[in-house]
């Protein structure tokens, strides 16, 4: 490795550690949230350095963007009074045990990582690629070889939305809003670009970095930006259409998984000649659903029709 690259990586690691520390220990909650967002951004850079652009895309959109928006929105609604005392945890009582636990966990992880077979599963995946139906190894693992895991991930996300909806109605209406004419104008300009990039990533997932998760995260980022600019879920979309959009990914996934049983009687055993189109269907449905689910998580509850507006 070139010395400049090593210097860059060392700086990156150091900044991440400092930001992680600040995210937990900053006296000011706002400072902690901003540190956390910066941490997400640098994590994305770290994934790029590890040559994993898929994860970098998802991390940048989720870790830095959506989670940051969620935390800042929460911060805006917190009671201003009791915030200083809550976070001023003492080093000995709080940090030391957790640091010891973290150190032990890291050591354990390191030991496990070193004990794993060195090349990992690369070879097995590459051997099976001709039968995968897609050209991108990442998509092949996510939506074919280990489709079962992805199915469960999407089910967990849907469960989270259901749990959130059971807690009450959306909280966006109570968020104070600034008169800021620039933001709606920006959203009008950028929203088509968000949609374009979402579909580009979905299409690209078949043969390169991209796919359902980055595409969904990007779609959600665009939708959340629109919500922040004052757009509301239109009335005709609440209720059944929204529920369908939320469940579409899981439903399409399950239908395909059960449907292919007609061929060989095995759950998720795509018939090779139909694998590309089936995977593309699952990917598009899952990507759109992930986008809507993440936005629903930001809304914080089932949308109420408090006011009409552009969406």
């Amino acid at each position: 490795m070139h010395p400049v690259e090593m210097l860059f990586d060392a700086l990156l690691l150091l900044s991440m550690v400092v930001l992680a520390w600040q995210g937990v220990h900053a006296r000011n909650l706002f400072r902690a949230v901003v540190s956390f967002m910066m941490f997400g951004l640098l994590t994305a850079v770290a994934w790029v350095r590890l040559e994993a652009p898929d994860i970098a895309l998802a991390e940048a959109a989720l870790g830095a963007g959506l989670t940051g928006a969620l935390l800042l929105a929460t911060l805006g609604r917190l009671d201003q009074g009791g915030r200083a005392t809550r976070l001023r945890t003492t080093f000995m009582r709080f940090s030391l045990p957790w640091m010891a636990l973290g150190l032990a966990g890291t050591t354990l992880l390191l030991a496990v990582t070193l004990a794993l077979p060195a090349p990992g599963l690369d070879e097995a995946v590459l051997r099976a690629m001709p039968a995968a139906g897609v050209d991108s190894p990442v998509t092949a693992v996510l939506l074919n070889f280990r489709a079962w895991d992805t199915l469960l991930e999407i089910a967990v996300m849907l469960l989270a939305v259901v749990a959130l909806w059971s807690l009450g109605q959306d909280v966006l209406a109570s968020t104070p809003r600034l008169p800021a004419p620039a933001l709606p104008a920006l959203v009008r300009l950028l929203f088509p670009l968000f949609l374009l990039s979402t579909f580009y990533l979905l299409w690209r997932g078949g043969h390169g970095p991209g796919g359902a998760f980055p595409a969904g995260a990007l779609l959600a980022a665009g939708l959340v930006l629109a919500l922040l600019a004052g757009a509301r879920v239109p009335e005709r979309m609440t209720g059944a259409p929204l529920r369908c959009a939320l469940a579409a990914g899981l439903l399409a996934f399950l239908m395909v998984a059960v449907g292919v049983m007609a061929d060989r009687g095995v759950f998720f055993a795509y018939p090779p000649q139909h694998a590309p189109i089936l995977i593309a269907m699952v990917e598009i449905a899952a990507g759109l659903s992930i986008g809507v689910m993440l936005t629903a998580l930001f809304l914080g509850g089932e949308p109420t029709d408090v006011e009409g507006g552009p969406s």
Binding site: L178, A180, A182, L183, A185, L186, L190
Partner: peptide
């Protein structure tokens, strides 16, 4: 575009 909007939002 986004930088100009962000600056305006922070200032407001």
């Amino acid at each position: 575009v986004s930088g100009a909007t962000c600056s305006s939002l922070i200032a407001r």
